[in-house]
């Protein structure tokens, strides 16, 4: 965690901590505790997907074949690239290259936004294909298979919840980039970048798991 920090890079101790190491450790432990809750939040949705698949295998496969497999795959690539830029931002923060770090953070935010744009396009394509069963006023493509609604609706809940996390992540990242571009940031709050990086990687990981669970294994 604190390995290989350059001179002048570090964190400023808050009043209720005794040492900087204690403060750093508390923050790391805190974000991991939070990520545990994020994992269980999505895992419960994946469990519902599994049960739907067990109870209605044909309907689920039929519904899954209507998902936009290639958009999902491209979006996974986008997020894996964003993980790379986030890792770069962390490394730059450690060696004190502040401008490079800020650029890597902006790139990460841009890639996250690209994911959301592609996701939005995917929803639009779903809408055009009449694959929005929760819209009461719009006819549903797979009316003959009522149980397929379950999986399709679950797909919307899961991807919207993930999208919400990504949107929150992008907002936090942009806010933090603004603060992080100021002079002296890396001597006061370097570990913010590391903590935020853990969150970003984990949201990517959720998608890395969601893509196969929703799009791939049910084909």
């Amino acid at each position: 965690m604190s390995t290989g920090l350059a001179d002048g890079v570090g964190i400023k101790r808050a009043h209720h901590f005794e040492t900087v190491a204690q403060q750093r450790y508390a923050a790391t432990l805190g974000i991991w505790a939070w990520l545990i809750t994020e994992l269980l939040l999505f895992a419960a949705l994946f469990l519902v997907a599994l049960i739907v698949r067990i109870q209605h295998p044909e309907a689920t496969q039929e519904a899954a074949r209507h998902l936009k497999f290639w958009i999902g795959a491209v979006n996974t690539v986008v997020l894996i690239v964003s993980s790379l830029t986030m890792s770069m931002a962390i490394e730059f923060s450690r060696i004190g290259w502040q401008r490079a770090m800020v650029r890597a953070m902006l790139a990460t935010a841009a890639l996250g936004s690209l994911f959301l744009v592609l996701k939005g396009y995917e929803y639009y394509a779903d809408y055009e294909e009449h694959m929005m069963p929760f819209l009461g006023s719009r006819p549903y493509e797979l009316t003959a298979s009522p149980a397929s609604r379950l999986f399709v609706n679950l797909y919307y809940v899961a991807t919207l919840l993930h999208g919400l996390h990504l949107l929150t992540g992008i907002s936090l990242l942009l806010g933090m980039t603004w603060i992080a571009s100021k002079a002296g940031f890396l001597s006061r709050h370097q570990n913010w970048i590391e903590i935020y990086g853990l969150y970003w990687h984990f949201i990517d990981l959720i998608w890395i798991m969601a893509f196969p669970i929703l799009y791939v294994v049910n084909r």
Partner: peptide
């Protein structure tokens, strides 16, 4: 709100 069906037996939910 949207009758997504996963808990609704009418659509095969549980």
């Amino acid at each position: 709100a949207f009758h997504i069906g996963v808990f609704d037996p009418a659509y095969g939910g549980d």
